[in-house]
Design a protein around this nucleic acid. Structure first.
Length: 805
RNA sequence: GCCGAAGUGAUGGAAUGGUAGACAUGAAGGUCUCAAAAACCUUUGAUCGCAAGGUCAUGUGGGUUCGACUCCCACCUUCGGCACCA
C-alpha cells in the first residue's frame, strides 16, 4: 500500500490538466452553456483562506455542472486599480503599478495550487490600458447621453494635506497620515446620473431572476422611492422661500419649526446678525461629523436657531427656522418641516429646545381631543387641529385631500423623491482610469475623441498630495491641445472610481482582447446572462447595483439585449481567524493557504472549506477540524487496496443510490457541507464491509471529484480509466433503489414520541394496519390505559400521533 | 439610528411543520506498542434512576397546531451594510 502524499500527486495533476487543456473552455454550442462567475478579487497581495473559501464552492459547482453535461465558462481576473496600491506607494515608496503586478503574479500562482478549473486564458486586469480604454469609452457614451456630468459633493477633506480622503483613511475623524481634523468640504467631481435609472433598478415583487430577497429588499430600500410633495414656506421679512419635501403632508397643521441642513446655502443667507456667531460655530462643528455619525446620534440631536421665521401657508402661523445636522443636504431639498406631534425624531428635538408640540392625529371621530402615540399616529388615525380637514381618516382620506388642496392653493407640488443619489465617479487619486475629458478655456469640457483612447496613465507622478490630484503634477501629461479648437488645454486630472471597473468586467471576460468595442457582442449573445454570480454580502448595495445599472445602460445603447446580467446571485460569508476575529495581519490570526497546503494538500483544504459551514455563513477556521477532512481523504485513499469485482448487495445499492441522490440535490442547491456529510456517512457504511466493490468505489470517486480533484484523478486513473475523471459523466440515480426496504415509524402520544415500529416500506400507506400495530405495543397500551385515542393522525411514512386526554 | 441576516451540545454545524443534535471536531475510556504517535473500537446535550424508563432542553417571553428549531407577535444579543476600502 502506498501512502497518501498530496505533495507528490497534486502538482503532477495540475501540470497534466494544464498540458492536456482539460479545463480549456471552447465556444461550442453542442452543450448548454453555464457561465460561472465569482467577483474578481482585489490583488492585495495577502491571499488568505478567505479568498479560497469564496472560490472553492464555485469551483465545485463548476465541476459538477461540467459533469452533468454543461459547457462551463469559468475564469478569474483582478480588480487591480484602487486605493491600497496608492497607500502602499505613499507608505513604502513602491510604485502602485509594480506593487499591483507583483501581487497579481503571486496570487495567480497561489490560486493555481488550489486546483481550480479556472481557465486563465480569459483572465484580465482592470489596470491594463487594453481594459480601461473601454472604461473611458463607456464614460464618453454616458457623457454623450447626458448621464455623466461634473457636479459638486461633500467629501472628507484634510486641510493640512490639502486632499480628499477616502472614508477608510479617516481614523476617528482625523487624517490617517498627519492626524489633522478632517472636515466636510464641497468639492467638484464627476457623477453618473444613476437616478435616471432608479425606477428601472427597483426590483419587482417576483423577478424573473433568482437573487436573494435580502439583496432585492436592500437595493429597493437603498433606492428608496417615496412619493410626496414639496411645500414652500415664505420667509418672513425676506424674499426667500424654503422648500421642504415630505411624504406626510397631512401633518402640515402640526408644523412648529423648520430645519435646514448645515450645508444649505440658505443658512448663511437667512441667519440674523444676532444669531450669526452661534450658527457659524454650529455649522463648523457639523462639518467635522461624517454623515453616518450625524444619522446615528439619534438621542442627542443638536441644533441652533437662525433667528428667522417662515410663515406656514396653510394657517399663516409664524414658524422658527433652525439648523440641525440631522438634516442631510444631499437628500431632498436639504430642509425639513418639524412635526413633533407625529415624528419621534422631531419630538425629541422639540423637547430639547422647548419648541411647541401640536398633535394633529387623534384616535377616533367621537373624541377628537384624544391623540395617538407618535408610533401609531402615522399608521391610522383621525385628523385633529387641522382646520377644515378635522375628522378625516388619516392617512387614507386626509393625505390625498390635503395634497389636492395644497397644490390648488399653490403651496405645494407633488414630487417623487429617491434616497438613491447620483454615483460619484471621480477620485482625486492616481491609481485609476484617467477621466477622458479635456478642459479647454474656450470650449469648456471637451470629451477626448474615441480615436485617442486610451488616455494612458503616466508612470512617473508625484503621489504626495498637495492640493491637487496626483496626475496634475505631471505637466507634460496634463497639457494638451484642445481637440476642438486646437488651443492650449488641460486634461482632467481625476481618475474613475474602481466600482466603474468592476461594473462590466464580466462582459469583457468572454473575449478579453476584443478590440472593436468594450466586449464581443457575439460572445455575449452566446454566454450572457451569467448563470450564477458568487460574491460577498458587502456588495449588496454598491457593486451589484452598479453592475445592474451598467447592463441597463448597455441595453439602452443597443449593445446588449438583457434586463439583468446574472440569473442567480449567491452571497458567501467569511472565514474568521481561529480566535473568532476577522483575519488581519495586525491580529496575527491570518491563515495562509500555502502553509495549510504544505501540511495537508489542497484537496484537504478544499474539502474542509466546503465542509466547515454553509457558504453563506461566517465562522472561524479550526486547525483541528481540518485534520478530520484529511482523515476522510486518507481513508478514501486506503480503501483502494481492498476492491472486489463482485456486485454490491441490495442494501449497498440502496445506500449508493441514496447518496448519489443526496449529493446531487445538495450540489444543485449549493450545500456543499451536507453533500460532504453524506459522502462521509457512506464511507462509514462502506468501511464496515470486508470488501468494497469496484462499482461502489467508482461512484464514490465520481461524487467526490468536484471536491477533491487531485486525489480522485489519481485513484481514477490508477484503477479505472486513463481518461480524466473530470471528463466523466455524473452518476445517475436508479429510482428502484432509493427507498429503504423497511422504515421506522415513530409513534407519538400527544406529540411526544413514545415508541416506534418497523414497517416494510411497501406498507407505509396502510394506515389501518399501522394503527393496529401501534395499539398492540405494550408501551402504547400502558399510556392508553384501556381507552381509545380521541384522535389519530398519520402522516404517511413519517409519524403516527395518538391524541388522548 | 436605519436596512438586512443570524442565535441549536464543549466547538463547527444538521434537521424549513413530523424521532432535535446527521456529519465532523474536541474530550473520556479501550485495542495495538517497551513507550509514544498514528490508526481502529466504544461512550459523549443536561438531569433523576440500580434498571426499565422519566423529566428538561434549539437566545427570552407569549401565541397558533394533534405536533414548532421551523409559522405568528413582542423583546434581547451578535454580525454585515449605510454611498471615497474593495
Amino acid at each position: 500500500m502506498t501512502k497518501y502524499q498530496p505533495s507528490q500527486i497534486e502538482p503532477k495533476w495540475q501540470k497534466y490538466w494544464q498540458d492536456q487543456g482539460t479545463y480549456n473552455f471552447e465556444y461550442d454550442s453542442k452543450k448548454p452553456y453555464f457561465y460561472n462567475l465569482v467577483e474578481l478579487p482585489y490583488p492585495s497581495g495577502d491571499l488568505h483562506v478567505g479568498h479560497w473559501f469564496a472560490f472553492v464552492t464555485p469551483d465545485v459547482i463548476a465541476r459538477f455542472k461540467r459533469m452533468t453535461g454543461h459547457n462551463v465558462f469559468f475564469t478569474n481576473g483582478y480588480d487591480a486599480f484602487g486605493l491600497p496600491a496608492e497607500n502602499a506607494a505613499i507608505k513604502r515608496g513602491i510604485h502602485p503599478k509594480d506593487w499591483t503586478y507583483a501581487n497579481m503574479e503571486s496570487m495567480t500562482k497561489q490560486f493555481q495550487t488550489l486546483g481550480t478549473m479556472i481557465d486563465w486564458r480569459f483572465s484580465l486586469a482592470t489596470c491594463d490600458p487594453e481594459y480601461y480604454k473601454w472604461n473611458q469609452w463607456i464614460f464618453l457614451k454616458l457623457m454623450e447621453k447626458d448621464l455623466a456630468y461634473l457636479g459638486k459633493a461633500l467629501s472628507n477633506w484634510c486641510p493640512s494635506c490639502q486632499t480628499v480622503l477616502a472614508n477608510e483613511n479617516v481614523d476617528g475623524g482625523k487624517c490617517w497620515r498627519c492626524g489633522s481634523e478632517v472636515i466636510q468640504k464641497e468639492v467638484s467631481q464627476w457623477f453618473y446620473k444613476i437616478t435616471d435609472y432608479a425606477d428601472k433598478l427597483i426590483w419587482p415583487e417576483s423577478p424573473k431572476v433568482d437573487w436573494p430577497m435580502s439583496v432585492r429588499v436592500g437595493q429597493n430600500n437603498w433606492i428608496g422611492k417615496s412619493e410626496g410633495v414639496e411645500i414652500t414656506f415664505p420667509v418672513q421679512d425676506s424674499e426667500h422661500k424654503i422648500t421642504v419635501f415630505t411624504v406626510y403632508p397631512e401633518t402640515i397643521f402640526g408644523v412648529t419649526y423648520l430645519v435646514l441642513a448645515p450645508e444649505s446655502p440658505l443658512v448663511s443667507e437667512l441667519t440674523t446678525p444676532e444669531c450669526e456667531a452661534a450658527v457659524t460655530k454650529y455649522v463648523q462643528e457639523a462639518s467635522k461629523k461624517s454623515e453616518l455619525e450625524r444619522k446615528s446620534l439619534e438621542k442627542q440631536k443638536t441644533g441652533c436657531f437662525t433667528g428667522r421665521y417662515v410663515i406656514n401657508p396653510v394657517n399663516d402661523q409664524k414658524v422658527p427656522v433652525w439648523v440641525s445636522d440631522y438634516v442631510i443636504a444631499g437628500y431632498g431639498t436639504g430642509a425639513v418641516m418639524g412635526v413633533p406631534g407625529s415624528d419621534e425624531r422631531d419630538f425629541s428635538f422639540a423637547e430639547k429646545y422647548d419648541l411647541p408640540v401640536i398633535r394633529v392625529i387623534g384616535k377616533s371621530a367621537d373624541d377628537l381631543s384624544e391623540v395617538l402615540s407618535i408610533e401609531e399616529a402615522l399608521e391610522e388615525g383621525i385628523l385633529v387641529n387641522s382646520s377644515q380637514f378635522d375628522g378625516l381618516k388619516s392617512p387614507k382620506e386626509a393625505r390625498p385631500r390635503i395634497i389636492e388642496w395644497l397644490i390648488s392653493q399653490g403651496f405645494a407640488k407633488s414630487k417623487i423623491q429617491y434616497h438613491l443619489h447620483d454615483w460619484s465617479i471621480s477620485r482625486q487619486r492616481y491609481w485609476g482610469t484617467p477621466v477622458p475629458v479635456i478642459h479647454c478655456p474656450t470650449d469648456g469640457l471637451v470629451p477626448v475623441p474615441e480615436k485617442d483612447l486610451p488616455v494612458e496613465l503616466p508612470y512617473d507622478v508625484d503621489f504626495a498630495p498637495k492640493g491637487k490630484p496626483p496626475l496634475a503634477s505631471d505637466e507634460k501629461w496634463l497639457k494638451v491641445d484642445c481637440p476642438k479648437c486646437g488651443g492650449p488645454a488641460e486634461r482632467d486630472a481625476e481618475t474613475l472610481d474602481t466600482f466603474m471597473d468592476s461594473s462590466w468586467y464580466y462582459y469583457r471576460y468572454l473575449d478579453p482582447h476584443y478590440s472593436d468595442g468594450p466586449f464581443n457582442p457575439e460572445k455575449v449573445k452566446q454566454l450572457m446572462p451569467v448563470s450564477i454570480y458568487f460574491g460577498g454580502a458587502e456588495h449588496t448595495l454598491g457593486h451589484t447595483l452598479y453592475a445592474r445599472f451598467m447592463t441597463k445602460f448597455f441595453k439602452d445603447l443597443g449593445l446588449v439585449d438583457l434586463d439583468e446580467f446574472a440569473n442567480k446571485r449567491v452571497q458567501h460569508g467569511t472565514v474568521l481567524g481561529p480566535d473568532g476575529n476577522k483575519m488581519s495581519k495586525s491580529k496575527g490570526n491570518v491563515i495562509n493557504p500555502d502553509d495549510v497546503v504544505k501540511e495537508y494538500g489542497s484537496d484537504t483544504v478544499r474539502l474542509y472549506l466546503c465542509f466547515m459551514m454553509p457558504y453563506e455563513a461566517v465562522g472561524p477556521w479550526s486547525q483541528s477540524a481540518i485534520a478530520g477532512a484529511y482523515r476522510f481523504i486518507t481513508r478514501i485513499w486506503d480503501l483502494s487496496d481492498n476492491l472486489s469485482d463482485s456486485l454490491p448487495d441490495k442494501a449497498s445499492l440502496i445506500k449508493l443510490n441514496q447518496t448519489i441522490d443526496k449529493v446531487t440535490g445538495d450540489l444543485k442547491s449549493i450545500k456543499t457541507n451536507t453533500a460532504i456529510a453524506a459522502l462521509m456517512e457512506w464511507l462509514n457504511f462502506l468501511a464496515k464491509k470486508p470488501k468494497l466493490t469496484k462499482i461502489e468505489y467508482k461512484n464514490l470517486l465520481l461524487l467526490l471529484a468536484p471536491f477533491a480533484p487531485h486525489l480522485t484523478e489519481q485513484l481514477w486513473q490508477d484503477h479505472f480509466d486513463k481518461q480524466s475523471i473530470h471528463l466523466q459523466a455524473w452518476p445517475a440515480v436508479d429510482q428502484a433503489y432509493l427507498r429503504d426496504e423497511e422504515v421506522t415509524i415513530p409513534i407519538s402520544i400527544n406529540g411526544k414520541v413514545r415508541d416506534s415500529i418497523l414497517v416494510s416500506s411497501q406498507k407505509t400507506g396502510d394506515q389501518e394496519a399501522i394503527e393496529q400495530l401501534a395499539l398492540e405495543r405494550p408501551k402504547i397500551q400502558a399510556y392508553l390505559k384501556g381507552q381509545k385515542p380521541l384522535k389519530v393522525i398519520y402522516v404517511s411514512g413519517k409519524i403516527l400521533n395518538l391524541v388522548i386526554n
